[in-house]
Amino acid sequence: MSSELLPHTLEPHPVTGMYNGKFGLWLFLASEVMLFGALFSAYILLRTHGDFPSHEETTLNYKIGALNTFLLITSSVTMVMAWASFKLNEPSKGKLYLWLTVFLSVAFLVIKIKFEYLHKIHHGITPDTSTFYAIYYCMTGLHGLHILGGVIVMLYFLLPGFGLWRKNPEQFTNRIECTGLYWHFVDLVWIFLFPVFYLL
């Protein structure tokens, strides 16, 4: 079945008010809430269970964390601006914003890997150092993989996937909207990860 023939591929369903892709993406995000929920639960447990290093004993640099928070928030704005531009039928502006988002997220990843992970590993701080670093590497690593996934999707829509804009601009804009929803969620997770690991 070619997807063009399926109902509600483009037009929103009268009851839910969403097209298929958007509803599907929200459901996926609901499952992501549970995924990160389990990890946050693990964090709370480890932290309250003893043998968890106090904040003073850990060496995360909150300045780098704050910088990365800022990068991600900015990327969320550029993402939503990219969607708005496509919606307003300004594809070149939309593309520019999308490239900006890619740039900001790559910057986030480079900072995360080069100045945090590699720096720490160089100083012998690895996941098995303590439960704090174990959950830190695990959660930020999983979050980083989400960023990487988002970057790959954005690059797809910018390069080979952009042909869809000429064929069906509405569907393309919808896909950007879904990418955006995912992206804002990833941003939202970081908004919680930052204080939890860097400040508390």
């Binding site: 009851v15 839910t16 459901l27 609901a30 809430v33 549970m34 946050f40 709370i44 309250t48």
Partner: peptide, 24 residues
């Protein structure tokens, strides 16, 4: 701007999220 269907799904997820957080 979304409708109630989505809210219900998210409320459900939020409830189970809280349950997970309560494990510790």
């Amino acid at each position: 701007g979304e409708r109630s269907t989505l809210y219900w799904v998210l409320i459900l997820a939020a409830f189970f999220f809280l349950l997970l957080i309560l494990i510790p």
